[in-house]
Design a protein around this nucleic acid. Sequence first.
DNA 1: CATTAAATATCGTCC
DNA 2: GGACGATGTTTAATG
Lengths: 248, 248
Amino acid sequence: MNPAEASERLIKDLRERNTVFVVCSCSIEYWGRSRSVVGCGERLVIFKPDTTIIVHSLSGFKPLNWMSPPTDTSVEAEGDCIVIFSQRTIKPFEEIKIRIEDIIDYRSYSKLKDQEKLDLTHTEKDMRDYLAKNTHLVHPGFRLKSVEYRSPLGFFDLYGKIGDKYAVIELKAEKAGLPAALQIKRYKDWLMQNVKDDVNAILVAPSITPNALTLLRKEGIDYIKFDIKSIRETRKKPADTLKKWISH
Amino acid sequence: MNPAEASERLIKDLRERNTVFVVCSCSIEYWGRSRSVVGCGERLVIFKPDTTIIVHSLSGFKPLNWMSPPTDTSVEAEGDCIVIFSQRTIKPFEEIKIRIEDIIDYRSYSKLKDQEKLDLTHTEKDMRDYLAKNTHLVHPGFRLKSVEYRSPLGFFDLYGKIGDKYAVIELKAEKAGLPAALQIKRYKDWLMQNVKDDVNAILVAPSITPNALTLLRKEGIDYIKFDIKSIRETRKKPADTLKKWISH
DNA sequence: CATTAAATATCGTCC
DNA sequence: GGACGATGTTTAATG
């Protein structure tokens, strides 16, 4: 398979929206939100049916380079190389040029199917839903008025009253840091200025950094320890399937 | 290749730190920072030499599931399936179980090599370096004292004086939003409380959201439009290589 | 190891 | 399409 043939095959595969996997030596240039250049090395290039392009190096979670769909892509042989040039067709406009110098393996797959959706739980959204139904865990006297209340300063995760006082609740599914503390501080400040002098503010999180806790103390904001992971066991089992493994 | 044989081969490949690429029908469970479950579908599974595991579905940039290194992984045949169980050996501890029901393609590669490093430019760091050398672009009278000044509230990108007044400069390489505006506001507030009454604060960014600009106006903070992409052309060319494409 | 901030962040959602 | 916030964010730098 010479460069011209390889180009032809890739063009055909991309046209047919096949999934393509190429192990190759390549160099890459990227222009867009930032710019990047990398010299020749052996990498894994993936073309997905939705026109996503991903280039993985041999280490780490993050791709070396990538293009998010929708992209337009051209392929051509250029001497001993195959040059792939791809442009994103919506904002932010981006471009990538992959110059393949040596194909180590080329695989393509048609008609791959995946109907299943990922069921992700124990996120901040789950925490919000759970505490909205179990308001006593926030405070015995908390009366919920609104979930995700849209204030000019941002969303109040939970908003309501405790006795006569308004109460704003900020939730974090993971350890709360300074940004979270500052966030609820400005919610409290805003409420005290614009709604009523006396306001309850509570930060709910599984843990908190010392700096954040100090700030809360100073500002008269409560911290409540709560971990959605320890409460919820709503995880579904993976769907059983009737499909059998076919031995060859 | 039956499940027992496939397991053996995968175990061998993982032991030898080969790069492995498996196209298969699989279901996946994840426990860790959150939890996820997904039923059986056709996906691309990548095992990297550094023990990274990535599962890509047929669309989108983001993997369906993944494990960041370092991980320990076990593989075993279980009836018609191959079950891969992997645990992260450092914090945060995480686990993934991939149940492969049908292998469509199995490829492994040894001795892949990639020495090249990505050269990324036009980032905030580049912008900082550039403006530190061209302070007049921030303000004709700006005298730089410190880059990345460590204050109790965080880093001041640029810090110095304009005339008698202290000046704090916050840089954004992309459009500045509310978070950026709030960030420099609290820098300014802190300086006015702890250093001196009168402080210059300037946000430098290529563009800004209306909300953020309104807040800056209200707070007496200046906004300067500056785009590092329009200034810098420091991008290197990809390294030429002597390696020739070998036609078969 | 914890904290902090940037990132080609990506992604969803609401306006 | 812009703006805003969560993310299994990841990654790097630094104390």
